[in-house]
Structure formats: C-alpha cells, structure tokens
Simulated assay, not measured.
Amino acid sequence: MSILLSVLAALAEIAGCFSFWAWLRLGKSALWLVPGVFSLVLFAWLLTRIDADFAGRAYAAYGGVYIATSLVWLWAVEGVRPDRWDGLGGALCLLGAAVILFAPRQA
C-alpha cells in the first residue's frame, strides 16, 4: 500500500507543480493554478498516509518514487522519452527508496 500511495502522491505533486510550470514557463492562464493547488493539497494528504514510523523516513523513501514517477511524466505528458541514464538513475533511486522503506529495523 505504501508504494501505491507514494506513486499517487508523486503524481499529485508533479501535476500540481506542473500547473505552476505551465503558468510561469509555458504562458498558460493563471486558472491552471486552481487544480494545481488542489493537487498539491492532495499530495500532502497522500504523503501522510504512507505507513512509516517517522515522517523523515517516509519523505526520504518517497523521494525515490517521485524521481521515477517524474521520468514517467516526462515521457507520458511531455513527450520526451527518458534515456538510459534517466532509467539507471531512476532505478537506483527506487532501490534506495526500497532500502529505506522496507529495511528490517529494531523496534
């Protein structure tokens, strides 16, 4: 469930930030900010649903998922296919996120 929540949070954060990008960098209407702000609030709420004992650990693990999801966004929304270095970097980040989130820890 933590992985699904992380992916959903990443999509919400990327969509929210992209709305600001579209407004400021692509010349879109300021109305793009309305769903963007909603999306960023959804992101924050989803991030709190991740099953982790400490916020910092949840955020650190989420970072790897965010990076990989950003590369999917690059391809699916912006039409730029990630190259092998993007793929390798994304895979390393996911491996790091898995170590942080799923490592056995003393209670």
Rank of each mutant, 00 (worst) to 15 (best):
77 V>I: 15
80 V>E: 14
60 A>Q: 04
65 V>Y: 09
58 A>N: 05
52 A>G: 03
85 W>S: 13
80 V>G: 12
60 A>W: 00
83 D>Y: 10
73 W>Q: 03
86 D>Q: 09
84 R>Q: 15
82 P>I: 02
72 V>W: 02
61 A>H: 11
72 V>L: 14
65 V>Q: 07
89 G>H: 04
70 S>P: 03
80 V>C: 12
66 Y>P: 02
71 L>T: 07
67 I>F: 12
59 Y>L: 07
86 D>L: 07
74 L>C: 01
66 Y>E: 08
53 D>I: 09
55 A>D: 14
55 A>S: 15
62 Y>G: 00
84 R>L: 14
73 W>M: 03
89 G>Q: 03
60 A>K: 04
87 G>W: 15
65 V>S: 03
86 D>R: 00
88 L>G: 09
54 F>V: 15
57 R>N: 08
87 G>A: 12
60 A>D: 03
87 G>P: 10
61 A>L: 06
73 W>I: 02
64 G>M: 06
78 E>Q: 10
66 Y>R: 01
57 R>V: 15
63 G>F: 08
73 W>T: 01
79 G>E: 08
52 A>K: 05
59 Y>K: 11
56 G>A: 08
52 A>Q: 09
54 F>I: 14
62 Y>A: 03
80 V>T: 12
60 A>E: 02
74 L>Q: 08
81 R>I: 13
78 E>P: 10
59 Y>P: 01
68 A>D: 09
50 I>T: 00
59 Y>M: 03
55 A>E: 15
83 D>P: 01
68 A>T: 14
86 D>G: 12
70 S>V: 07
80 V>P: 08
64 G>H: 10
80 V>R: 13
63 G>W: 05
90 G>P: 05
65 V>K: 04
55 A>T: 14
59 Y>I: 11
60 A>F: 08
78 E>L: 12
72 V>I: 06
80 V>M: 14
56 G>S: 07
73 W>R: 06
78 E>F: 05
79 G>W: 14
64 G>Y: 00
76 A>T: 01
77 V>P: 05
81 R>K: 14
83 D>L: 09
77 V>L: 15
82 P>L: 06
89 G>E: 04
76 A>N: 11
73 W>F: 01
60 A>S: 04
72 V>K: 15
81 R>W: 11
87 G>K: 12
66 Y>G: 04
50 I>H: 05
77 V>R: 12
82 P>T: 04
74 L>D: 04
60 A>H: 00
87 G>R: 12
70 S>A: 11
85 W>G: 05
50 I>C: 02
68 A>I: 11
60 A>P: 04
86 D>I: 12
